[in-house]
Design a protein around this nucleic acid. Structure first.
Lengths: 206, 206
DNA sequence: CCCGATATTTGCTTCTTGAGCAAAGTTCTG
DNA sequence: CAGAACTTTGCTCAAGAAGCAAATATCGGG
């Protein structure tokens, strides 16, 4: 899965990065991000404050880095999957497998979404990261379906739907207390809803 | 439409706010937001820097305020529209009418989206505003359809789809150079795509 | 093993922002 | 017109973001 042959340099860089992110997360959970300074994070992570700036362009980024999942693999899998399958269906399959195989990683991401409640300054940065994903995905969908992104709304709409499906699923999963094995179903429900065109019409009891 | 009977106080407040926003926008277009300081904006708007902070919590907010459209009316119209109509359809009608009736306002908003290209720091703040809208709308959809927001993904998914439809439409409208009368069609296309469940499947020539 | 090349970490400095506070200046109410 | 309510302002301070150069660590070839 991951490169085992990494120089010491690269290895230490990752350690540093991880320990900064972990420190930022820990302190944020303890006292709220707005009461945490770079200096404190630096002490906790055994680096200088200046080093934090080298890795992250804000405290917020550092905190969120602790919950960022590696989406590259999923995106590549998407791009290399057979293009006869409609994009949303392909993404649904990929995402629900991911939910089954890596619930741990997704739980971390979901906690980040949850952290936003108590730490509002996280939201803008997380959303900016989310939109990067939407943009990347839009491009891949455009390529896959031979659509011009700048003229036809299809790729962007599908990409947004897919990303909302994931975020919405993570949010409800978190709200339900991360019940084992429920995430894949939430993901499928969300994607299916989008694929089917939001069919429900009028009020009904739960 | 708007309250004509406003005290002088309220009136001046709006003027101040508007002139700060206008100054921020003008300077940003001239030299890029990162090269503009609060002090400059203050000079341009004939207020003290401290006053800017009273109105906005960042330069970015000030710039974006120049293009923010009043969504309250649309949201209320949505809530008071007959709930037999599926939410996305209702929103489609409301939004495309809005596009027809107030292209000027929407053009301003679209320019803000465009400004993001050259001024990346605007993005997080705009997205945060956008997500507020999604959250508000999710609540209204939940109410309208008698759905529990915290259990069923439907309201959030529909709300995201509606907001992406608008943002995507504005973006493509801008990319096409704001052609007269094309916005309503873009809006309808986007909403219809979502309503129909993104039916296109495989590659095809444009 | 050692050395020069290359990267990373750090400290220092400067600029900017965001926000609390109280004083000065406006508008409002009656 | 007088006192209450609100807005604007200047002052102050804690922090963050980023450039620069020195110190430190790693790398790769001999």
């Amino acid at each position: 899965m991951e490169d085992v042959r990494l120089g010491l340099r690269e290895l230490k860089k990752r350690q540093t990065r991880d320990s900064i992110a972990a420190a930022a997360l820990k302190l944020t959970e303890e006292k709220g991000l707005s009461d945490v300074t770079l200096e404190e994070i630096a002490r906790e992570a055994f680096v200088s404050p200046r080093t934090i700036s080298n890795y992250f362009s804000s405290k917020e980024e550092a905190v969120l880095a602790a919950g960022t999942i590696a989406t590259e693999q999923v995106l590549e899998d998407f791009s290399s999957s057979p293009s006869e399958v409609p994009p949303l269906e392909a993404l649904c399959v990929l995402m629900s497998s991911y939910a089954r195989e890596h619930p741990d990683r997704l739980r971390k991401s979901a906690r980040m979404v949850a952290l936003e409640e108590s730490n509002p300054s996280l939201r803008p940065i997380r959303l900016a990261q989310e939109v990067e994903l939407v943009i990347d995905l839009s491009g891949r969908i455009a390529t896959r379906t031979g659509t011009d992104l700048t003229v036809d709304v299809y790729p962007s709409m599908v990409a947004s739907a897919a990303v909302s499906a994931m975020v919405t699923s993570l949010t409800l999963w978190y709200l339900a207390g991360f019940p084992e094995d429920r995430l894949p179903k939430l993901v499928e429900d969300s994607f299916n809803l989008a694929s089917a065109g939001y069919p429900r019409r009028t009020a009904e009891p739960a």
